[in-house]
Design a protein around this nucleic acid. Structure first.
Lengths: 221, 221
DNA sequence: ATTGAACATGGTGCATACATCAATACCCAT
DNA sequence: ATGGGTATTGATGTATGCACCATGTTCAAT
């Protein structure tokens, strides 16, 4: 029984998170009828949601087949991360919002939560902290276009690093703690440019980690 | 009588161009039923097209009211152009495709067409040349994510400069000729980085022109 | 045994009727 | 004359039946 009132926005977020959290692994075929039945509505609004997901490059709809969760190939990984590296540097440049004490408080809270991950790891908690950190920084971006691109690339890259976090949580959690520590420091100094560069650096670290995971060893002749 | 076979992709391009060419001025209310009747199909595929346009920030769909062509306010102009300036610099940086003799030939052809605009101005021809130039350069971009963003921001900015071109065609056409001249030179040198910087510069020129058009005079105390 | 086409099945794409929402005009009370 | 609640109108949002497409299967011919 579903007592909740599912709106198209909430369904979109639900499906998006299922894809990002690899609950729907790449290649999964989603059926409109099944989703419609699950959420207790008709196929029409489901189709609208799937179209939005397709715009975000998370799925591709194929006539007569179904809606297929997109694959994670290496070329796309490179393209997304190359862009995120460059986009991050713009965060503090394109007329950002001023950092407030409330922001600082939120960052400190996230840092504390992240530190607890070191001893008690939980994939769901890791995801939620990342999510909150992303929202916190996206809210600083003054340029609306930059914020949209930043947001979309975040969700498009999420599956890559979430899978890596599940495989080898140790290093990933250490990075998250370090990142939030630096962000807290930058927030204390009210330095938005620093926030952008911190993001750039940790995206680069994550990128390196993912690449070495795909290339376990250097090829030997 | 419509003998052509309208596909959703062609309808999307048609409506997009109507918005960009100010055939549908900002504030215009589009009715799904009217569009469905015009293209000889039902409301369902029309709604899909309108959703795509909304994703591109060209319209907003309001329940019970209609689909409204978005307004051109100054804040959005600033955000879009700030981003385009930064994005343009990445064209030659993020693994671009090699420039070929065929590209050079196309650029020279566009330059010739642009020169004819100086004596015989035509708004439609101006639009088509800009369109072809955009496609030519977008095709050089190797990073798929960058290409998508570049493409979307082009169409999002189109209405601003198209309106300016209609108001004062002279300076705009001169800029176009100069831009295509420099692009041709960069193509001859097979220098993709130069292409990106040329784009950046002429976007900046256009930006300055638009800002001065919105601020006819400096405010006097 | 293998290959080929015809067919059965289950999916998305489309068309249409109905439900719901927003704006406006209207009418009655003041 | 005016103000506010109500009815009306026409829009988008939703549900559902049908058409078309893709895919796997089956059966016959070689």
């Amino acid at each position: 029984m579903d007592m909740e009132k599912h709106t198209t926005a909430s369904i979109f977020e639900t499906l998006r998170d299922r894809i990002c959290l690899l609950d729907y692994p790449p290649g999964t075929i989603l059926r409109e009828a099944a989703l419609a039945k699950e959420f207790g509505i008709s196929r029409t609004p489901i189709r609208a949601v799937l179209q939005r997901l397709e715009h975000g490059s998370l799925v591709t709809v194929r006539d007569g087949v179904g809606t297929i969760v997109t694959d994670l190939d290496r070329a796309e990984l490179n393209d997304i991360y190359e862009m995120r590296l460059k986009i991050a540097e713009l965060i503090g440049v394109l007329s950002p919002r001023k950092i407030t004490p409330a922001d600082e408080t939120l960052a400190i809270g996230l840092l504390k939560r992240a530190r607890q991950l070191v001893t008690n790891y939980s994939a769901s908690e890791y995801w939620q902290i990342n999510h909150a950190q992303h929202a916190l920084i996206a809210d600083l971006i003054g340029n609306s276009v930059l914020r949209e691109v930043w947001d979309q690339l975040y969700y498009r890259s999420a599956r890559f690093w979430y899978r890596e976090a599940s495989n080898t949580p140790d290093g990933v959690v250490q990075d998250l703690v370090a990142e939030l520590g630096e962000i807290t420091r930058a927030f204390r100094a009210r330095d938005t440019v620093a926030v952008g560069y911190i993001q750039r650096n940790f995206i680069a670290f994550s990128f390196a980690r993912l690449k070495s995971a795909l290339n376990p060893d250097q090829p030997t002749s």
